[in-house]
Design a protein around this nucleic acid. Sequence first.
RNA 1: GGCGCAUUGGUGUAGUUGGUUAACACGCUGCCCUCUCAAGGCAGAGAUCACGGGUUCGAGUCCCGUAUGCGCUACCA
Length: 530
Amino acid sequence: MTARVRFAPSPTGYLHIGAARSALFNWLFARKVGGKFLLRIEDTDLQRSTDESTRSIIEGLEWLGLDYDEEIVFQSNNADQHRAAAKKLVAEGKAYRDFTPKEQREDKSVKQGIVDRARAHAAEGIDHRSNPFRELAKEESERRAAAGEPFAIRLKVAAEGVSRFADIVYGDQERAHAEIEDLVILRSDGHPLYNLSVVLDDIEMGITHVIRGQDHLTNTHKQILLYQAFGAPVPQFAHLPLILAPNKAKLSKRKHGEVVSLTTYRDRGFVPDAFVNFLVRLGWSPDTTHYPAEIIGAGDTGEVQPNPDPKDEIFSRERLIQLFSLDRVNKSNAVFNFHENDPRHWTDDKALWMNAEYIRTMPLAELLPMVKAELRSEKLWREEYDEDEIVWFAKAVELIRQRFFTLKDFSSHGRAYFSEDFDFEEAAVRKNIFKEPKLKELLPALGDRLETIEPLDAAQAEAALRIFSDEVGVKAGLLINASRTMLTGQAVGPSMFEVFEILGRERSVMRLRSQRPWHEFSEATEGQGN
RNA sequence: GGCGCAUUGGUGUAGUUGGUUAACACGCUGCCCUCUCAAGGCAGAGAUCACGGGUUCGAGUCCCGUAUGCGCUACCA
């Protein structure tokens, strides 16, 4: 039997990174075992579900490269079947109509309401199964329903016995039926509820492995009861640890903002594979056991690769598929360690590091289209980069990628490589240019010197600059650092001679002759004057 | 309140059936390299393995309890 798994988000907002990770684990599992990965949108909550959110989920999965194998299932399309199934359970005596009027929610929190009621019931010795309608005569129930009296449908849970299942991640789970209330499966307005809908859809879609967040671990017992009521085979379950905020609270949009939204990472310049690589390490690690080559087979065919080294952190998508296994998922929740109000560490440092690692080491051919998209979105793209200047473009990207963290850096820190319209950083100007008054004359003179060299490659530029610095009696470093700021507006960047070569003779000379720093900033040192 | 799950340096993780200097990655500090900043190389700080008992010659690894966190407990998903 081929495995069939699904990712089943509810479209009530952006795609949460925790949900994205669930999708990833499902996808990896499916690809690993040659099964099917399906997508189901759980849009039963019509008030909260939005098309925009559905779109963002689909886009998010596409961005991560998690392709699904069949048509998307929209749960709302199945509401009629779900209703019919609930009524069938009533007819079979496995569920009953509850005519208790719907409770009005107070303004206090749901959680507090639950606790209060549980306390009150405990104090009065009320069993949660003491519903007066549980054993109502069939005829009476039919009569009241026919008379138009509203009712919810509850599953009749056995008073005795226990529910058991073996979770692939969390191990054997057991819960006494006495702990499970007669859950409502159909609302009095005819609306099917979550536990009913998931089970029915999972049966319908032939799901064999349910891989989802640990927040559903205890719900699973209820769902198993429903599988049994419908006489359907129970799938395997694997629950995933949750992703928590730095204060170990649940990550939420309201409290933590855009760091929890997957689209943020796309919009802020993450490489999809890098983010996948980061996400997969939250709660999963590969088997690093080292088996002798004579046991696992020869490595030269490429078919059998040894397990990774413990120090390995970078895994390609293909490697992840090869290495992935649900029994290597751990049980404790992971903290997503971002720093609010710190622009440098706006998200987890390791995610940022990993993205930088991908940007500087991934095949250039894969990076170039991403840089192109970024430049295009910032109106810095020129068609020549795809034509006559294609070699230049590749070399420029190769040069500057080495110290970038996100794709956004290509249009911000890297702007001067693609446009004359770049800014000078004031601190850089003060540090590298204003500190030596002679530079106002030396830099244009250096420009004159470099103008005589064609082509202006790195070696030539270096030779010329060093000779020039000797002649005028200043340290080469002074001219190098000043040049960097003149040509890029910044105090830091790649090796200066490479920059000369990439920018070329014309642009280098023009920028060395520019008077912009003196026009844009006052030479007066801060804290002095008046 | 009840039930469930978890607990290894700041963060993510490793630690196969208990065996004795608790490993790796990120981050942090210093040094080297150097035209700056990264990268890279080297070195270092940082963990009484939540706490308390127990079993054992020996426990991060097994058992019990406590604490803390999280989850579920809804006619939310």
